[in-house]
Amino acid sequence: MTHPPVMSLRGITHSFGAVRALVDVDLDVHAHEVVAVVGDNGAGKSTLVAVLAGALVPDAGEVVVDGQEVLLRSPGLARQLGVATVFQDLALCEDLDVVENVFLGQELRRGPLLDEVAMEREAQRLLAQLAARVPSVRAPVSELSGGQRQAVAVARALVGEPRVLVLDEPTASLGVTQTAEVLNLVERVRDRGYGVVLVSQNMADVQAVADRVVVLRRGRVNGVFDGETASYEEIIAAITGVVPNRAGGAR
């Protein structure tokens, strides 16, 4: 990839009291690329997501978006700067329909009233882009499956054309079919030119879609692998810190 990254993290460091959650973390995200962030429980994945989402300002380090150093001070600001995050719980409203959820908090208006026609059309376009099958855009989200809900949450994140999409454990609570659906979704988002950060604990998912795999261990980057060529064992070794059959187990 010859283009500069759309987003770079440089030396991100953050502590909660005595706990060093992130130490000097670097991360580059390019357009048309899925970067997977993996790691064991407590490796710092959630903290990294919070930093990317603008929910947490790190103690040190810089975030560069499109060559500009920025401070992701709030989720709203992160969105404005083109970094959209889909949290693990999706943050949907069950009683509201698909269109209402896609535009939740960023409704389009005509004068003082909501512009339902424009929102429905745009929601339809976004979902078609994701090839998401939803029974009706006017169906309440409570009627949708887990995979369909993920699609709605991703469509919402794509409103306003972000540069980078951060997905936090998108398949954690899904079955086999729905997981496949969501992974297709991830690839489609990438193919449309977005940079995708996929935070996951599921190695199968990661190997299926990731172009690069960044391993976090105890808050540090413990290896960056090519998604195509890296073996399962190599990545697991980096996650657990055990070096497999090499140089007498030196760390």
Partner: peptide, 17 residues
């Protein structure tokens, strides 16, 4: 819209801004 969103799921409504 915000009234219905809050009644449906306060946390989601808050995060939606």
């Amino acid at each position: 819209r915000s009234v219905r969103a809050i009644g449906s799921n306060v946390e989601s409504a808050r995060r939606a801004g």
